[in-house]
Each structure stands twice: as structure tokens, then as C-alpha cells.
């Protein structure tokens, strides 16, 4: 009996030691972790997560200040990836932060635009080109669809246009008939 207890506690101690060492030895450096989280986030920079961009949100997650389910553009797929990376349970998207939408890009109605440059200042990725008093245009390839330019516009001339599927971005579907 006593032997057994000694053996078991010895084993427990040993394994605890190994685990403890491993967690120190393989601890992911703070910054490296932020990088990894940031690499998963979609970089829409829309601030729907409650932080002023993807990187601040990544930092908040790394420091445990934010949950992993606050990014609507990333959707559930990204939450799964974050859960895997951090070794935590998956949670459904927190609806407070918004719903995922189909990818869209902003479009400026160039006839209405008065060239006030307010949208230009709001765009997180400098995807709007234009100069004061000139009409502005959106560089569609660079627009992330964050919608941050819409509220500042005094004449409401920016609309979001869903990205159309084209031969270039078309994807094969998995077989319809699943194996029974």
C-alpha cells in the first residue's frame, strides 16, 4: 500500500515537473503569439471587434483582455483557427460585434462626391485615392470592405458592392452526394 502511494506520488511529481519544464521551455513569446494571432485575423481593419484594428485585437487576445469570438469578418472559420492556436474551446461568434457579411468593396458615386477627403482619412488601408476638392475613387483591389468610410461622408455617396463571383475567384464545390 505504502509502496503504491510512494510510487504514484513520485510519478505525479515527475510528470508535473516535466510538464512545468515544457511549459517554460516551449512558452510562446508574447510577441510571437501576437504575430501568430494577427496572421489569422482577416486584416479588414474594421474595428468591429472593439479595437482600432486587427493588431490591437491580436494583442488584446494574447494578453487575455479579449475573447476569441469578436471578429465578424473572420467568421467561425477564424474562431476555429484561433481556438486551435490558443488551445481553448471554440465559441460561436459574439453577435454583439456584428454578423459576417459577404465580402464587399466600397464604391463612390463620383457624380455626387464633393471631394471633402473625409473618407480618405477614415480608410485604414489607404485604398481611396483623391485630393481635396476632387472626386475620389476606391481602389477596389485594396479595399478590405471595412465600411469605415461610409459614416463620415457628408453626402452619403459611398455604397458597398458585394464582390461578384468571376471565373478568376470561382471555386470547385465538393461532391454533392456525400458517401452514405
Amino acid at each position: 500500500m505504502l509502496d503504491a502511494i510512494i510510487v504514484m506520488s513520485g510519478l505525479a511529481l515527475f510528470l508535473g515537473g516535466v510538464l512545468g519544464y515544457a511549459s517554460i521551455r516551449f512558452h510562446v513569446q508574447g510577441n510571437a503569439l501576437v504575430e501568430k494571432i494577427d496572421a489569422i485575423l482577416p486584416q479588414t481593419q474594421c474595428a468591429q471587434c472593439g479595437f482600432p484594428g486587427c493588431r490591437p485585437y491580436a494583442e488584446a487576445i494574447a494578453e487575455g483582455r479579449a475573447d476569441i469570438n469578436q471578429c465578424p469578418p473572420g467568421g467561425e472559420a477564424n474562431i476555429h483557427k484561433l481556438a486551435d492556436l490558443l488551445g481553448v474551446e471554440f465559441k460561436p461568434l459574439n453577435a454583439e460585434h456584428g454578423e459576417p457579411k459577404p465580402k464587399s468593396v466600397a464604391y463612390i458615386d463620383e457624380n455626387t462626391c464633393i471631394g471633402c477627403t473625409l473618407c480618405l482619412q477614415a480608410c485604414p488601408v489607404d485604398a481611396i485615392s483623391g485630393a481635396p476638392k476632387q472626386m475620389h475613387t476606391i481602389i477596389a483591389q485594396e479595399c478590405t470592405g471595412c465600411e469605415l468610410c461610409i459614416p463620415p461622408c457628408p453626402v452619403d455617396c459611398i455604397v458597398m458592392v458585394p464582390v461578384e463571383s468571376s471565373i478568376a475567384n470561382w471555386k470547385w464545390k465538393p461532391p454533392m452526394k456525400e458517401v452514405a
Binding site: Q43, R55, V125, E142, K171, P174
Partner: peptide, 30 residues
Amino acid sequence: QYYRYAKSEIWAQEREKKASDLARLRHEFR
């Protein structure tokens, strides 16, 4: 069909990754 599907998913992921890398760079720059 499974292989075509997997290939086009991987390509799509690569496209998205490129786009988000670009967005990150532009945001950092800004």
C-alpha cells in the same frame, strides 16, 4: 472532384492570405 475542390480551396486561401497580407502592410504603413 474532391481533388479539384481541395485544390481550388487551397488557391482561394492563398489569394485571401495575399490580400490580407497586403492589407496588413498598407495598414501598418498608414
